[in-house]
Simulated scan of single mutants.
Amino acid sequence: MSARGVGKLCFLKKTVNAAVYQDVLETFLIPTVEEQFGEEDFIFQQDLAPAHAAKSTKDWFTKKQLEVLAWPANSPDLNVIENLWAIVKRKIRDRKPTTLDQLKQNIATAWEAVSAETCDKLVKSMPRRLRAVIQAKGAATKY
C-alpha cells in the first residue's frame, strides 16, 4: 500500500524466507510501483523481519535501485500496514466464512474497498507516529 492506494493482494501458502519475499516483491511490488508511481521516486518501508533484512534481499533492492527506509532494530511497530490490516479485519468481522476460499474472497473484497484517501491518511500519520515515539522515548504509543 502507498498513499495512492492498495496494490494487488497476495495470499501465500508457504513460509516467507528471503527467496519467497523477493519473489513477492518482484511479482507484486514492482507492478504496483509502476502503476502508482511510474517514474516518480518513492521510498519503500519494511521492518527488519529476517526475510526483509537478508543480504540477498538488500542486494535485490540495490539491483532494482529502490530506496528502502532505514528501520531501527527493536523499534515500535509503526508500519501503517498494521492499521490497514485492522481496517480490513473490521470490514470482514461480521462475515462467517465456512471455507478458506470464502475467507480469502472476504479479505480480497475488503482490501479492494480500501480507498486511496484512507491509505493517504495512514501514510500522512507517519510524522505524528514518529513524534509520539520520540516523546515516549521509544516506549509504547497509541499507534
Results as ranks from 00 to 15, higher is better:
Thr98Leu: 06
Leu66Asp: 07
Tyr21Trp: 15
Arg4Phe: 10
Ala110Arg: 04
Ala139Ile: 10
Trp71Val: 07
Thr141Met: 14
Thr118Tyr: 12
Lys124Ala: 14
Ala53Ser: 12
Arg129Asn: 04
Gly138Val: 15
Lys142Glu: 00
Lys121Gln: 14
Ile92Val: 15
Glu26Trp: 09
Lys14Phe: 03
Gln102Ile: 09
Pro31Asn: 09
Gly7Ala: 06
Pro31Asp: 06
Trp60Cys: 07
Val16Ala: 04
Gln36Asn: 06
Lys13Pro: 02
Thr32Gly: 01
Gln105Phe: 01
Arg90Ser: 07
Pro76Val: 10
Lys58Asp: 08
Arg90Met: 13
Thr15Pro: 02
Ala110Ile: 05
Ala3Pro: 02
Val24Pro: 03
Gly7Phe: 01
Arg95Cys: 04
Val68Ser: 05
Cys119Gln: 02
Arg129Val: 12
Pro50Met: 04
Thr118Gln: 08
Thr118Lys: 10
Lys64Gln: 15
Val133Pro: 05
Cys10Met: 04
Val114Met: 10
Leu12Thr: 07
Ala73Phe: 12
Asn106Gly: 00
Ala136Thr: 15
Thr15Lys: 08
Glu26Leu: 11
Lys58Glu: 14
Ala132Asn: 06
Glu67Asn: 12
Ala19Trp: 03
Lys64Arg: 15
His52Glu: 08
Ala18Arg: 13
Ala70Asp: 11
Glu35Asn: 06
Tyr143Trp: 15
Asp47Gly: 01
Arg90Asn: 08
Gly138Ile: 13
Ile134Ala: 15
Gln102Trp: 11
Gln105Ala: 00
Ala132Gly: 06
Val114His: 07
Trp60Asn: 06
Glu26Thr: 13
Asn17Met: 02
Cys10Gly: 00
Thr62Cys: 12
Asp41Tyr: 07
Leu100Glu: 14
Asp59Leu: 05
Gln46Arg: 13
Arg128Asp: 08
Asp101Glu: 11
Ser75Ala: 08
Leu130Arg: 13
Val114Asn: 03
Leu122Ala: 01
Ser115Trp: 13
Val68Pro: 03
Ala116Cys: 03
Ala116Val: 07
Asn106Val: 00
Ile134Tyr: 14
Ile87Gly: 02
Thr32His: 09
Val6His: 00
Trp60Tyr: 14
Val16Trp: 03
Glu35Ile: 01
Lys137Thr: 05
Val33Tyr: 02
Ser125Thr: 13
Leu130Ala: 13
Asn83Pro: 12
Cys119Phe: 04
Arg128Val: 10
Pro31Arg: 11
Cys119Val: 03
Phe28Thr: 00
Gln36Ser: 06
Val6Cys: 00
Arg93Leu: 13
Lys63Asn: 04
Ala140Cys: 08
Ala86Ser: 12
Met126Leu: 15
Asn74Lys: 00
Asp47Ser: 00
Ala132Val: 13
Lys104Ile: 01
Ser125Met: 14
Ile81His: 02
Val24Ile: 13
Arg93Asp: 03
Phe11Glu: 07
Lys121Leu: 15
Ser125Trp: 15
Val33Phe: 05
Glu39His: 09
Ile30Tyr: 12
Phe37Ile: 02
Lys89Asn: 00
Lys121Pro: 07
Met126Pro: 14
Ala19Gly: 05
Ala18Leu: 05
Ser56Gly: 07
His52Gln: 11
Thr141Leu: 14
Lys58Asn: 14
Val114Ile: 15
Glu39Arg: 02
Lys104Gly: 04
Thr57Val: 09
Val123Lys: 02
Lys8Ala: 04
Leu122Glu: 03
Glu40Tyr: 06
